[in-house]
Design a protein around this nucleic acid. Structure first.
Lengths: 134, 134
DNA sequence: AGGATAGCTGACGTTTACGTAATGCATACG
DNA sequence: CGTATGCATTACGTAAACGTCAGCTATCCT
């Protein structure tokens, strides 16, 4: 057993800094599949792995629906071949868009740095002329 | 005059692949400032530059409000010093978050590639056992 | 003059991703 | 035994970012 301990909803919330509402919402949208003990949710190692990917995907600006499709790639042990192939294609597309996004991000970073150098010069010259006026 | 030609709302829409509603919405939110000829909007070179940055920001997952603040950095000729300094700070924060995002994106790309190699192996072995069964 | 075309202003509708009560069950605690 | 605590389910509310539709103008064309 590789750390097959389950967590309550509160423990999850503290561990990942989300609200209970968020976790229940993700379950409703079939992004997480906590098991039930009575009526209580118990989150497994698998749920934790998925939640980590969900939160990361969100930081990249992907929608929950986008993320849901990608998640299958990380948990496809029992899939059919055709389903797996489709998932693989989706993953390829997503990978490409992530690479594109990274490249554009690099460009944007360089441009912003450039602008900020300009801003520094402006700040410097403004504080100079202010000193001269005193 | 450095290409100081204005564009109608339709021309903008085709050039940037957005709807008129979007452009009017951005104006209402003070992201764009088209001049008026009668009651018609005329978009300037400045608006085009800003729109390009807006759309890019959106692809990075920034909110319009985030973007609005950043935009000031690119068009701060007539600002006061204090205002400029504040804008500069905002830009620094944003730059850092973009760098963080890029780094995390690189990690995610590597992980996804790894998963896909695994998926390829699965696909291969599944098609093998299928051939063997025939 | 009478459309067709392009743009305008409200104003209400929609989707996404949750927030926020209101109400109910179950268990632990003094 | 009562109550406080933790989690549950409905269900309605909300902010962001537009979509959509109705009704009004100005202009150009024949």
């Amino acid at each position: 057993m590789t750390d097959e301990k389950t967590m309550t909803i509160r423990e999850m919330c503290e561990a990942f800094d989300v609200t209970p509402r968020t976790l229940r919402f993700y379950e409703a949208k079939e992004l997480l599949f906590p098991i039930r003990e009575g009526q209580k949710r118990l989150f497994t190692r698998r749920d934790r792995a998925r939640l980590k990917l969900i939160l990361r995907g969100k930081r990249f600006g992907f929608s929950l629906e986008d993320i849901r499709q990608l998640l299958d790639l990380y948990h496809m042990g029992d899939q059919q071949q055709t389903q797996l192939a489709k998932t693989y294609e989706i993953a390829q597309d997503r990978l490409q868009s992530m690479i594109d996004q990274r490249d554009e991000l690099n460009e944007a970073i360089d441009e912003l740095k450039e602008q900020m150098r300009w801003g520094e010069k402006m700040l410097a010259s403004m504080s100079n002329s202010k000193k001269a006026a005193e």
